[in-house]
Simulated assay, not measured.
Amino acid sequence: PYATQIDRPFRHDPSLYAFGEDTGAVMPKAILSEYEPLKRQPPLFAEGGLIYELSVKSFTRLHPQVPEELRGTVAALAHPAILAHLKKIGVDAVELMPITAWIDERHLPPLGLSNAWGYNPVGFMALDPRLCPGGVRELRDTVAALHAQGIGVILDLVFNHTGESDIDGSILSLRGLDNLTAFRHPPGEPGVLINDTGTGNTVACDHPYVRQLIIDSLKHFVLNAGIDGFRFDLAPVLGRTADGFDMASATLEAMHSDPVLHDRVLIAEPW
């Protein structure tokens, strides 16, 4: 869960659903990385500014002015043609749809389909190699190029569920390490997953260990990539407790009070 870079994307394999199978050969491996933290700056975005939500892959995939090897990647957003376009239409900040590592929903591969938008995460920090092959450094350099043009960067992050799906889903990360801690379960029913998200599982964002993972993920992107803010997918799950949603939950409070995060742009998707 704390990997910041992986060596390949997540992909489905029959062994991921079989009890007792060794899945080491089909699982991505974490790349141990060190970063020199950036000097923390105030977020580059003024209230009321224009936010341009974009899918990193599709935004530049067919752009004739972007070199072919860069098309569809985070690095392509720093190309002069892209920067000029964003400036021309008056963009104050770009909101990048999920770029952290995800896996296709399991019903898609048999249909010859794939998840293009990334809202099915496995890693909360690791960037998907298909979109950001250069890892955090690629993201950091692109953020710097956008900042130089007066454009802020907001990341769309998914903390409400993981791509491990329902009880018949694959074992990829949090489920294999500590299923009972990481996900919400009905009282006295450890073999049942609460499905508040409609995706098969719901991350227990109020658990202290999970809360720390979320806060550490946000701080990682601010300190190591210079990110100005975050948009949270199905945001109420971040404040969900055993008694329902709590707008004063410890996890939401931690975001507001953390010295690194307290001034970031925070956008909540209602659900």
Rank of each mutant, 00 (worst) to 15 (best):
G123I: 02
E36L: 14
K57S: 10
E36A: 08
E21C: 12
R61D: 10
A145Q: 09
P133F: 00
L113G: 09
K39D: 14
F45S: 01
H79M: 11
R137N: 12
Y35C: 02
R40Y: 07
L54C: 04
V94Y: 01
R140M: 04
E95C: 15
G118M: 00
L54P: 01
K87P: 07
D92T: 13
H85W: 12
D128Q: 06
I82V: 15
N115P: 05
E47S: 15
Q65D: 15
A93D: 00
V56A: 00
A144H: 11
E138K: 08
L16G: 05
P28M: 07
R140W: 02
T60A: 06
V136I: 15
E68Q: 14
L108A: 10
G112K: 12
L86K: 03
I51H: 03
G112T: 15
A25N: 08
K87W: 06
P110S: 09
K88N: 13
F19T: 13
E21S: 14
L44G: 03
C132M: 09
A126L: 02
P67Y: 03
G72A: 05
D104M: 09
A30D: 07
L96K: 00
V136A: 12
K88D: 14
S58E: 14
K29Q: 12
S33F: 04
L16D: 04
V122T: 03
R137Y: 12
A78H: 04
L113S: 12
Y35T: 03
A116C: 10
M125F: 03
L127M: 11
A116F: 13
L70R: 11
W102H: 05
H85N: 09
V91W: 00
V74Y: 01
P121K: 02
V56S: 00
E21R: 15
E69C: 05
D141H: 07
G135M: 02
P129H: 03
N115M: 14
V74S: 00
S33H: 07
R137D: 15
N115K: 11
V136C: 07
A76G: 05
H147Y: 10
G20A: 14
I31S: 04
M27E: 12
I99C: 00
L62S: 11
H85C: 06
E69H: 15
Y52I: 05
A84E: 11
D22R: 13
G123E: 07
Y52A: 06
E34M: 13
E95S: 14
S33D: 11
P129T: 05
I31P: 02
E105I: 10
F124P: 00
A101F: 03
I31Q: 07
M27N: 08
L83I: 15
A116I: 13
P110Y: 07
S55G: 12
G123Q: 06
V26H: 04
L83W: 12
A101T: 06
Y35A: 03
F45D: 01
E47G: 14
P110T: 13
A116P: 13
V136H: 02
R137I: 10
I31N: 04
